Simulated scan of single mutants.
Amino acid sequence: MEVTKITIDGPAGAGKSTIAELLAEKLGFLHLDSGAVYRAIGVAAKKKGIDLDNEEAVSSFLKSLSIEIKNSGRVFVNGVDLTEEIRKPEGGILASKIARFPEVRRKVIEVLRKAAEGRQVITDGRDAGTNIFPDADVKIFLTASSEERARRRYRELKEKGYNVSFDQVLEEVKERDYQDRNRKVAPLTVPEGACIIDTTGKTIKEVVREIENLILHSR
């Protein structure tokens, strides 16, 4: 069987994007980061002064958005590159807020499916294997303890120069977990048929090797 679609789901900080990016590079696949699209919508909406608690306002705003994922993985909204801006700490919170709304999720799925047409792709997110590509050939669900995920995120932010405390990051991780698991639309769940990998205490190389073996045995 030729593997053309791989999905990696899991909570914030489980290592989805990093591992998906490395796998995509090794396998020659296109990396689609669904979280980046949600972040881009959230950041763009805030820039325009949209009330992110107003579903009607957010849904109306979506009609004015053109979102494109370049081959390099960079995200453009109406021709503006928001790749760096969406990676700021606030980007994750904004993404989780607007992800509650069905119209936003439909927009993200539309963008990602269009980007995947005729390509071999690795998609990571909260519902990559459940809603975006339920027909994926290989489905992975990455997880880790909230403390482990907060430590990773804390190190990442400190390296980028952000002045944050570990307790602050841990609280944000727990808040996102709660929002993602309890939203009415497409809550974070393990996709049917997914292989669950706990990344706590594992290196990125170890996890990548484990997934590579799974892909190899799926062919």
Rank of each mutant, 00 (worst) to 15 (best):
E55D: 07
I196D: 00
E25H: 11
E206G: 05
A194P: 00
F101H: 01
L30M: 13
G193P: 08
I8W: 04
T130H: 01
I41F: 05
E25V: 04
A40M: 03
F166C: 09
L142Q: 06
E206M: 04
V111Q: 02
R153V: 10
E192T: 12
A44L: 03
R39S: 01
N213D: 14
P89T: 03
N163G: 11
S59L: 00
N131T: 09
I197G: 04
H217S: 15
R153L: 04
E171L: 05
I215K: 11
K63L: 13
D33W: 02
A12L: 02
M1H: 13
L214C: 07
G91L: 00
E206S: 15
R126L: 01
R183M: 02
T189K: 15
P187E: 10
A144M: 07
L142S: 11
V164Q: 09
L214S: 08
V111K: 01
E85D: 13
I211G: 06
N54L: 03
I140P: 10
Y154N: 00
R87K: 14
G201Q: 09
K184T: 09
E192L: 13
D198V: 03
D51V: 00
A144E: 03
Q179T: 12
L214A: 09
E85M: 02
S17H: 04
R153F: 01
G118I: 05
R209G: 06
I122L: 06
K139W: 11
I211C: 06
D127C: 02
V208S: 07
T189C: 12
Y154I: 00
I122R: 03
E212Q: 14
L32R: 05
G35R: 00
Q120V: 08
N71P: 11
I196G: 00
R87M: 09
N131S: 14
L112C: 12
I215T: 12
E171S: 14
E21G: 15
E84L: 10
I204S: 08
N71W: 01
R209M: 09
R100Y: 11
K202S: 14
C195E: 15
N213A: 15
I50E: 02
G28P: 03
Y178S: 13
E56A: 11
R39N: 06
V208K: 12
E212N: 10
P102V: 07
D127F: 06
T7N: 07
N182M: 13
V75E: 10
R74E: 15
V37N: 01
K97V: 12
A44M: 04
A95F: 02
V169H: 01
D124W: 07
